[in-house]
């Protein structure tokens, strides 16, 4: 799993990582130089100290040197910034809406919706459009690109691509309320064919299961009113105020990166989400569903892969 500024997975992040190393090494060199001068000022020989104490030394160290270094750095960084700018619209568009405390992900050209996980084919230029459904969030996947704020009333854009397959972790980077810390997501970089297969599965309507235990889960899901907030593709349930649950069983995490994804954690989450992530919008269902029903709902949802 990649989540560091210094482990880039695509050309944009790589460019920034390269710039970061330049800044760190240059900064370290200047820091050591200044500390050396300070040490010489404290304990150097009389000749060195006389030269350091001259007005000319202030002009050289405080004016000439920074002007030269910073001018060069300015030109360089503006070049990097321009290269990271938005060019022509990329063919693959992905829209992400931040909500307290999860992510809605849409592929408008493919007419699919998912949540808390973004699949991206490697080597393709992607255009990311972000906005917010409530307060300000910030979309940040360190190994992908810099962050971009999700601001109500505005749509912000970013362009990027990924070089190789892998899983990248992202997290909300603008304080957005009680559970800002538990608002993460994953980016899955995969080969084109695999990405298309994933889209195919996501687009396929979910049918009522044959297996009785799973069918009981489907039933209970409807009776408990889960569909008021959640959608499952192809079913009567099309709520949009909570995450879309199509292919939930195949996701890497539950509750926006809060829990590992398996039957027990899912059942626990449905029963008492306020104990796990206090302040999120989902009410507890342990009063609505009994034990077997809870397990059935969880089992059915886990079967959606």
């Amino acid at each position: 799993m990649h989540h560091s500024v210094l482990s880039p997975m695509g050309p944009e992040a790589a460019r920034i990582a390269e710039l970061s190393w330049l800044l760190f090494l240059g900064g370290a060199a200047i820091f050591l130089l200044v500390m050396l001068l300070l040490a010489l000022a404290l304990g150097g020989g009389p000749g060195v100290r006389r030269r350091l104490g001259a007005r000319r030394a202030i002009l050289a160290g405080g004016v000439a040197f920074p002007v030269l270094v910073l001018s060069a750095l300015l030109v360089h960084t503006l070049g990097v910034a321009a290269a990271l700018g938005l060019g022509e619209p990329a063919p693959l568009r992905i829209e992400v809406t931040g909500r307290q405390y999860w992510w809605e992900v849409r592929y408008p050209d493919r007419e699919v919706v998912t949540a808390n996980e973004i699949h991206i084919p490697v080597g393709r230029a992607v255009e990311l459009l972000v906005d917010s459904g409530d307060v300000i969030h910030s979309f940040w996947v360190p190994s992908l690109h810099g962050k971009i704020d999700m601001i109500p009333g505005r749509v912000n854009r970013r362009r990027f691509s990924l070089d190789r397959p892998g899983v990248l972790r992202g997290q909300c980077a603008e304080f957005c309320g009680t559970q800002h810390a538990l608002m993460a997501f994953f980016v899955v970089a995969e080969e084109e064919a695999e990405f298309e297969r994933w889209l195919e599965r996501l687009r396929a309507p979910v049918a009522k299961p044959e297996e009785p235990f799973l069918a009981q889960g489907w039933q209970a899901f409807g009776q408990a009113g889960c569909g008021a907030c959640h959608a499952v593709r192809g079913t009567p349930w099309a709520g949009r105020s909570g995450p879309d649950l199509t292919l939930l069983g195949g996701r890497l995490s539950l509750a926006a990166g809060t829990l590992d994804n398996h039957l027990a954690t899912l059942a626990g989450w449905i029963a008492g989400p306020q104990d796990i992530k206090p302040g999120n919008r989902m009410p507890a269902f342990n009063t609505v569903l009994d034990g077997p029903e809870l397990r059935a709902v969880a089992a059915w949802l886990e079967s959606l892969r």
């Binding site: 200044v34 150097g44 350091l52 040197f65």
Partner: peptide, 17 residues
């Protein structure tokens, strides 16, 4: 950052003298 640099070097220079 230029004026700040000036101050830092003025302080170092003063220590040196």
């Amino acid at each position: 950052s230029v004026p700040t640099g000036i101050q830092v070097f003025a302080w170092i220079g003063t220590i040196a003298t």
